[in-house]
Design a protein around this nucleic acid. Structure first.
Lengths: 240, 240
DNA sequence: GAGTGGTCTAGACCACCCC
DNA sequence: GGGTGGTCTAGACCACTCC
């Protein structure tokens, strides 16, 4: 079960092993896991290594610990798109919907002061503005506009946007997206938003602005989205 | 600086020490910290202990690591109420507003099937229904309704509700609130909501439903809130 | 090659829970 | 008292980055 000569870290192998037990239902919510010392002995590994695996699973919400009592399987995690940073595509798939996209604008423009401030670039610096109607099961779900500094991300084409912008950024440019701040507010559709989303003017919409950051805190992009309230709810999981 | 005989764990003392350096500005965003081995030597502690402190600070968003390069101070954390679970009161204080509250309903009712299902109690089981108008700087901000199983939380009184329900639950009943799921949607104020919030019928509002859970996953309460869109934006921080 | 973080060991003692 | 997780040690070798 555990291969000590594998290049995959032992603690990681143990995490996967425990996750599988939970997903197969052999460990049910509320069940106590075997104690750390027992795992250490069984697999001939150090207790600290077992603890590293357990700690990760606690942080991911699979387990919880109680001093003096033991380690237990947590209630089933909410299977939602929002336990972390996800793209529209990932979000829709997690919700069981077929994602789609229709490009409505793809331009390079000078940054307004508001956008330049958020992206921490010079005012009037070049940014890509990419507007897309986002579809779920072929019905409009949201109107999404991305702003990305053209100096940071060079060589974007329409083809890349139609494929996957995130995959291009992460795989081709080797930039790691690690965090984001989202601001969510309630609003009412303007005439042009209503036209794009195929709803009536004045219908309620969810306005989401996302700032995305790289590992060192450099702003990568700004995304402004308008979601149809009748089709979309935002879900967040929080820990104390 | 580090007291090895203190009952406070060494790794925790080190965390506080580093946090203070960051908050005082002696360590600025982007700065490299001294390497782990240097801390270990300086304070005569094990490198693993240093690593535990660093790891916690990375998880809390204060630091980030780069293999082969070093450990660095992250960009200033967004000082927002929403980097974790907060009560309305905490949220308002974090936003620089004076929280207030006006009780409009306090009853014990039989749980509807929807509420019973969410709280995982029997249908028609007793629940407290507590409705409050939430004020920020003395102006209505939200209409909030809590549902709590009366069997789980016994002996709530109006006085407790007017003080702090969370403090009562955590301190007096010794229950630890650890996680919550929030569903956020956009809607339009009904006539009665509009009256309570002092806005026009049909104005946009943010509908937030929160399910709160204890350590072992037991549902503690259900909170349904209606926030004025003109005064409130919801903010979330996410990590990959 | 030198320096950094990443993984791992084989112990130890403490704090807490339950019987 | 026995079992659990919580903290801590003093090393070791590996993987990665940079010069």
């Amino acid at each position: 079960m555990i291969n000590k000569n594998s290049p995959i870290p032992i603690y990681y192998q143990l995490e996967e092993l425990i996750k599988v037990l939970i997903e197969k239902g052999e460990l049910k919510p509320g069940d106590a896991l075997p104690p750390e010392r027992e795992y250490a002995e069984k697999y001939h590994i150090s207790r600290m290594t077992v603890r590293q695996a357990f700690t990760d699973l606690v942080n991911e919400g699979y387990l919880y610990r109680q001093q003096g009592k033991g380690t237990f399987v947590a209630e089933r995690k909410i299977e939602q798109g929002l336990q972390g940073l996800t793209s529209f595509t990932e979000d829709m798939i997690a919700r069981g919907l077929k994602p789609g996209s229709k490009l409505v604008k793809f331009e390079m423009i000078p940054a307004s002061s508001q956008i330049a401030g958020q992206l921490k670039i010079a005012e009037y610096g070049p940014v890509y503005e990419i507007s897309r109607i986002r579809l779920a099961d072929d019905v409009p779900m949201a109107l999404e506009t991305n702003y990305i500094s053209a100096n940071l991300i060079k060589g974007i084409t329409e083809d890349i946007v139609n494929e996957s912008l995130y995959a291009y950024i992460e795989e081709k440019l080797n930039l790691r997206i690690v965090s984001a701040t989202q601001t969510i507010e309630s609003s009412i559709a303007s005439q042009s938003e209503a036209n794009n989303l195929n709803i009536k003017k004045g219908s309620p919409v969810l306005l989401i602005q996302q700032n995305t950051y790289l590992l060192d805190g450099t702003p990568l992009e700004l995304v402004k989205s308008v979601y149809r309230a009748d089709r979309y709810k935002f879900i967040v999981q929080m820990k104390r």
